[in-house]
Design a binder for these strands. Structure first.
Lengths: 346, 346
DNA sequence: ATTGGTATTGGGAGCGCTCACAAGCATGCT
DNA sequence: AGCATGCTTGTGAGCGCTCCCAATACCAAT
């Protein structure tokens, strides 16, 4: 029973290529790995054989011997949200550029077991390292106890629980927005925050509060939302009822949408009666009614840095955990500007 | 030089476990693979050894011999868009449930080479099959010529180019929206379509047109957008200028947002002066001004069916390509209803 | 006592590849 | 001529696992 026999033809292996090209398997391997010392003639012959047999190297075999898979894992929580989706995309892009592929593992419930399980699943899979998108405190805490020899980088996760971290400077972003509102002589600035467990929400509260303190203004009570437009709407109704609200900094654009809607329903005009600023610069926010001033997060940079840090760790797992902070950018639009129709951005 | 020596201790392998438990490697393997005939005592001893050594099986080695990786690949184009992001998430979920992990490969430019390259990259990687999220015609065409022995399922991709397809019934969705508008005695319905190359855009045009035909109404000229709110805004301005527009069916919610904004700026009231319906049921659309009537796509179902079909193909690659169509659902909200403030949905 | 079955265990081969090493053969130098 | 040097190629081992097959132990049945 020889190789290229009847029926469901086995995919070609290196030995087949070698035989067809009249060389040893090792020379084929050299061509594949771009080893310099292979004569052009031999190389061409081998490439032709590869083409003819539609040969593709078996990466399991390669991984077995090299102990390198050129793959990284991404542990995430609901990658459908704006931030995580963009971060995941940026990571994939950066990984691809670095010659790595990306495996994803979403965690349904953010508890320690689930996270550990996800890491194990990826770890015993073919990845050399893991990037965790961990925007919640529980998530970071869980990662703290990941008993893994696997290089791990945390993205969007506060102190990272002992691992290297990459994140957008949430505090600074909130300060930018708050200061911008204060500059417009609004007295004080109200804040609709995100869920208490989210580190990003927490950072934005801090930034908002510290900027008010800097201006010697007592911070009003924080309103809590859950990132959804519905919760923004509910909080917007509360704010509208007060009658004394002149400026609101909302912790994300989706909730800001709800706030705008609530104000609109109560007959409050924006920006004439109330100024509203958001966070995220979602693609929609430039087309809200009115266009929304917001804070842009550079997810590409986050993905790139995350990948860089991870590659460093893979290279040398012993080195100290460094981190990267990506600066945010204020995008001013009509919701906080004069009543002119001018909009900035896109 | 024995195994558990000094310094950077090598991760434990099966032989280490076997030695510690005083059995052969084969018995360890049996425990790992849940083979029935292992005595409880032996099993316990082995499990303890596994625990103690923090042993995790090397999946490359396993894949090499079993020729199964329990991994699938997803080829996609910008997974940051609402549809693809949700589809990807649903696929990952379905895959996880089926015991598979997911590798993603995004394609930057949708040309045949890039797609072929992505498929090759995944294929020579560790995946048993591929799901392609291919919403553009070029993408599907490119997949038609993928010369691969790899099981492939196309999602959101028209006829799938010869591969099994799963998609939401775009034509039906558009009909639902159009009929709903016609029922409200608007005379005719205008349509702001998506990019001409997108199959979903195409399906929505067909559905809209055929429903108008059914009502014996000549379809007005199609307006083209590119899914962005900005393009919706531009087209909204055109429509507002006409002065005779009573109802618009917009091909996605983001563009609908732009349309709403353009109408608002021109002083057109919705739904009093113009009715507007969208497509996607994005989380924001219930909080637009006014809340948007739209068509919901069940991405979970798409992901689930895609995975099912792929597993079938992996099981038996010879069987004929079957497909699955997921029905859409109309969600009516204020933008097409009376001028009451009631909103349906969330 | 012998046979036959069944549950449990072990031995050895080999998956497809890369690595370390060595061999062959030109070419350059002393 | 003789030997070192560089380029090109081949040989064999082995990565960590699962498969196939055989060996052992233990029981009931002949």
């Amino acid at each position: 029973m020889t190789r290229n026999d009847i029926s469901p033809r086995r995919p070609a292996v290196m030995a087949d290529v070698a035989r067809l090209a009249g060389v040893s398997h090792q020379t084929v391997s050299r061509v594949l790995n771009e080893h310099p010392s292979v004569s052009p003639a031999t190389r061409d012959r081998i490439l032709a054989a590869i083409e003819q047999l539609d040969y593709r190297p078996n990466s399991a075999a390669r991984a077995l011997v090299t102990r390198r898979t050129r793959g990284i894992g991404v542990v995430s929580f609901t990658t459908t949200l704006f931030g995580p989706a963009n971060t995941l995309y940026a990571i994939e892009q950066a990984a691809r550029l670095a010659g790595y592929f990306v495996s994803v593992a979403n965690v349904e419930d953010v508890d320690e077991d689930a996270i550990r399980h996800a890491v194990e699943r990826l770890g015993s899979q073919f990845v050399e390292g893991i990037i965790a998108i961990a925007p919640q405190r529980v998530a970071v805490e869980a990662l703290r106890h990941v008993p893994s020899d696997l290089p791990l980088v945390v993205v969007e996760g506060g102190d990272g629980g002992g691992h290297p971290v990459v994140c957008v400077d949430q505090v600074e972003g909130a300060r930018l927005a708050t200061r911008h509102l204060l500059d417009r002589k609004v007295g004080t600035v109200w804040h609709v925050a995100g869920p208490i467990d989210w580190l990003e929400a927490q950072g934005r509260v801090s930034g908002w509060r510290s900027e008010l303190e800097r201006a010697a203004i007592t911070a009003p009570e924080v309103l809590r939302g859950d990132w959804t437009p519905a919760s923004g709407y509910a909080n917007g109704q509360l704010l509208a009822e007060r009658g004394d609200v002149r400026a609101v900094f909302v912790a994300n654009d989706q909730m800001a949408l709800g706030v705008l809607r609530a104000f609109h329903e109560r007959g409050l005009r924006i920006p004439d009666d109330v100024l509203v600023a958001g966070f995220d610069d979602s693609p929609d926010s430039a087309f809200f009614t009115p266009p929304l001033t917001t804070v842009r997060q550079n997810f590409d940079a986050v993905g790139r840095h995350g990948m860089e840090l991870l590659l460093q760790r893979i290279d040398d797992p012993t080195q100290a955990a460094t981190s990267a902070v990506v600066p945010p950018e204020l995008v001013t639009r009509q919701s906080t500007l004069g009543s002119s129709w001018e909009t900035s951005g896109r």
